[in-house]
Design a protein around this nucleic acid. Sequence first.
DNA 1: GGTCTAACCGACCATATGGTCTATTCAAAG
DNA 2: CTTTGAATAGACCATATGGTCGGTTAGACC
Lengths: 198, 198
Amino acid sequence: MATMHRIQVTGLQLFYSKGYYNTSVDDILKELNLSKGAFYYHFESKEDFFVQIIQNLMARKVYSTLIEPLEGHENPLNLITACFDNAMETAVHNDMDYGCILHNFIAEFNGKNDVIMQHLNEIVTVWEVNLITALQKGKFNGFLDRHVDCEAVTTFLMSSYFGVRTLMVGSSPSAKKYRFMAQLRQYFKSLEPKAVTT
Amino acid sequence: MATMHRIQVTGLQLFYSKGYYNTSVDDILKELNLSKGAFYYHFESKEDFFVQIIQNLMARKVYSTLIEPLEGHENPLNLITACFDNAMETAVHNDMDYGCILHNFIAEFNGKNDVIMQHLNEIVTVWEVNLITALQKGKFNGFLDRHVDCEAVTTFLMSSYFGVRTLMVGSSPSAKKYRFMAQLRQYFKSLEPKAVTT
DNA sequence: GGTCTAACCGACCATATGGTCTATTCAAAG
DNA sequence: CTTTGAATAGACCATATGGTCGGTTAGACC
């Protein structure tokens, strides 16, 4: 694995677990037994470094766990349910889980660093668009009631997912996941088509 | 206003807007035209300082905006709806909004500082307990269906609230609020008692 | 072998940070 | 008037941090 890539990987790991501002470049280099020279040969600054991590690693991760699973012609409500279930199950079995990566950094940079926020928001938007599209397709295919507001559902879904992932870090993540999923299904049921009065 | 209290107030302001690790003690003192001496006369350390802020200011704020509004014998679903609506409306009209204070710090300290996390979790638990209690009372009074799992609903509510508040910081908070509230009502409708087959 | 250069080393720098400590102010108590 | 002690000032310290820069290594190419 190329050095540049290795630095990014451990960089993301540390930023994720300790926070961006609370992680020094030296921390990352110590972990890799590398020197300052190696780092600043590959990256212009700590910020530039993080932006690259966002584009290279985070974007891909979000895509593979939250967006790709939405593809398919089945009921999008089922796809989303399975997608969330999977993502949360992975978190439950990961004792190094600190919540949704994307969301954590958004919380850390909101109103603090516009450059980074822009890049993070790009990923959020991609997710949002894909969710909306999947729901609209589902509506078209008769899986959702005609009156469902797909944008609103998406906002609600993104919010709740971001939130649980944070709550799950605290205690009994497995219980939290179970409860969350149960209510998600309850909510989804209310989006199904109402009995048609032909 | 006593100096100690003033330091806490501006301290919370800065911690909230810039993050704990990204705000130095000097930043706070500069804002107040105070010296290090004044600070370390009143507080043992930066961490002790923040713990006191949590107990003195944050706990009260969370209580007044998220817990107190739950009191009353009406339908808890309505109380919660009004409570969230109010909290979000305040955020919409605050251009210095950076999301839910409580949640932001939880995100920042999760897995990073156990001492602080303990104090933050205490507040979360109080909120959780009060939500559960309100819902259970509502169930007893026939506002909720018998089969509703109050703990699960609470988890779902806390999650989604934390999440939106973060999303609202990004763009068009008013639209996000509107969409969120609409879906919350939709979800709440599904918790109402089913037609009783006497 | 000689040259070139990407990749990396590590000493160094200016600044910032949490925290300490002595000195000073000032009002109330005696 | 003196004493006392809470409250504040600000110089000082050890350490950490982001970043710079001249030097070294090792392989590719001639």
